[in-house]
Design a protein around this nucleic acid. Sequence first.
DNA 1: TAGTATGTACGGTTTTTACTGTACAATGAT
DNA 2: ATCATTGTACAGTAAAAACCGTACATACTA
Lengths: 191, 191
Amino acid sequence: MNDKFAGLEPDQEQAIHKARKRVIESIGKNMDLYGITQSTGLLYGLMFFQDKPMNLDEMGQAMEMSKTSMSTGIRTLVDLNMVNKVWEKGSRKDLYEVERDWHQTFADFFVLKWRKAVEMNLTALRRSQNELVKLAEGASAETAEPVRAAVAGDLDKIGQAIAYYLWLDRVIDLLESGGIYEHVPKEPDSD
Amino acid sequence: MNDKFAGLEPDQEQAIHKARKRVIESIGKNMDLYGITQSTGLLYGLMFFQDKPMNLDEMGQAMEMSKTSMSTGIRTLVDLNMVNKVWEKGSRKDLYEVERDWHQTFADFFVLKWRKAVEMNLTALRRSQNELVKLAEGASAETAEPVRAAVAGDLDKIGQAIAYYLWLDRVIDLLESGGIYEHVPKEPDSD
DNA sequence: TAGTATGTACGGTTTTTACTGTACAATGAT
DNA sequence: ATCATTGTACAGTAAAAACCGTACATACTA
């Protein structure tokens, strides 16, 4: 039972909800950048304004959606470290609350998703690079020249791509280590 | 007509295609991070290995898809600055080639998409912040205290969020200005 | 141990998105 | 001006994803 609005006039309470709704919808709309569905984004926005951890039933009620959907939605949010599972004695229900450190949330997302992509692509690039090099080396005398010519362009492109991903990997390192805050402080320099 | 593989034995040509295919599919699979559909990602991967600009018909043939789909796919890639339209005299067809500077591609994506999200969210947050402040200020004597209490938490959360987005905005600045390369050089320091 | 509450796997349904073919507008060639 | 060629708007269809209700496994309670 939320008596946070006790003693308020109806239109005052209405105004607060309107203010929240604007933020929630903006957040929900932009969470596609995290590869998150809109309704999951709205769920996140809802939880953002909650002062206490929520359980699945409360979410379903507030979102007017099934508990099943809340379960899957909350799972993706937990997987992305955007929401944390909370233990509260006396309650048998699972409770969740949003991670309040958004800088961390942002960093976690990159480390998780982009690092994986970088690694996958690097693996593929290096494997193909290897194959092409060996193909050129192993070519018979008469095919050696055409093979080299055919492979040169690809090897060049692959080399460029690898260099890029190594750079991106270091960018991700900067987020993971927190070194980013030395170059972009959380509070802007007041000069 | 691509005679790039002239003089090659069939299995050599096969090996090259296999090497390319691995990279193309890896790229295609991970392009969802850019909010791009898999097939558009594959189109991008295909173009990545092309030495000459491609037209829509060539793409459709290579992808075994309709020209319409190529048109829409290429549009999203152009909108993201991942592919450039190229002019070639003598050809009435539109020609496209991938942007080779992937660092720039990465930066462009963030400036384009994330900046937009930051601005949208900041706008919503500030607007709601304003409303809540005014709500508290304008409350009648008897409701002043409950209103203040009800609004305090939201204002605090909104303030935190605004601070975060201002930070994120500066991170985007760092990418846009190229200042990122001072802290994460394209070529790693060789020490 | 039996009973109750809770989260999720699963199959079916609805909604959304991707894709295609056709028709047409725009552009360039003759 | 007429004709050809090219890209895309649009509407229909196929594919995919979101969502729901049920059933069930798990864990807690008495």
